[in-house]
Nucleic acid binder design. Sequence first.
DNA 1: AATTAATAGGACAGATTTAGTCCGATTACG
DNA 2: CGTAATCGGACTAAATCTGTCCTATTAATT
Lengths: 162, 162
Amino acid sequence: MLRLSKITDYGVVILSCLAGRRDELLSASDLAGTTGISEANVAKVLKAAARGELVIGQRGTGGGYRLARPAAEISITDVVEAFEGPIALTACVDGGDGSCSVESFCAMRHNWDVVNQAVRDALNKVTLKDMATGRIHAMAPIIDFSPPGPVEDTPEVAAVET
Amino acid sequence: MLRLSKITDYGVVILSCLAGRRDELLSASDLAGTTGISEANVAKVLKAAARGELVIGQRGTGGGYRLARPAAEISITDVVEAFEGPIALTACVDGGDGSCSVESFCAMRHNWDVVNQAVRDALNKVTLKDMATGRIHAMAPIIDFSPPGPVEDTPEVAAVET
DNA sequence: AATTAATAGGACAGATTTAGTCCGATTACG
DNA sequence: CGTAATCGGACTAAATCTGTCCTATTAATT
């Protein structure tokens, strides 16, 4: 079901919370209070986020965390990839090792790559700022795969060939 | 990493294989031979696919499976949802039960819904026929969230408001 | 009628992954 | 020097996934 782990789920909530308070240092326990997530989990999430360079931690008395970049420049793709690694819907993607038992079928690999890219791009269009404040109103996600011919309904096609 | 379970992964391979041979009855062991997936797993996948009404099983001698619909009418969304249930990136979606500890933050729920829909739509554009034979060439997945204004670059916007 | 080839449904143990907690080390401020 | 924080990792329990097997059921063939 394309599930995200809870850590990532928490991450989006916590980072969105930080997004609203740019330039403020919020401690893990502050954020635990605000979000209702247990302090231990908030800490875990923030440590991971710091490693992923999404937030910057300030140690010591009065320390805390703040976003490493403006909220509008951190996408859901960034967050998801920081917590869960590269976005890929199938195991049959990264390094071309022989993990796929049936090489003949791996013409599909190319197609998966493109599908993965589409998902990545979709998530990339939503930023922490949107999650925190905005309201996403509509989307027109289009995967065009008409072989050589003209594009069906989107005039501007971002070629994603791998 | 937005991982699909292996069963679903197998499912796409196996169903794509069936997609090439419309109107033929292929047994589980046939497909195991073709795909290199163990017979037990192929059987498991096909049983699930039959329950999900993606394929139709014919019992008895000479029996086997065939796609329930033309390959071009079965999307990756269909397959994924058949094997893994509804596509949703966060737990905070279905039935509005109070599983989300922080109601105040669930303004995000709306945004997640839209993101989920975008992913669903992206996967919906790829069919088993494409996976089996075609080559997806490009995609332009767009999530537009400019609040009230006109759409950025796609003229035809499928309004996805929940 | 018996046999055989196939799907249908589910039970099951083992392996893997995830979730949540906790402890010690490090850093910075007063 | 003590306190308040981040940082890094270890650890256990729970949940999930994987792969296999067993037993029905169904249909064609002999």
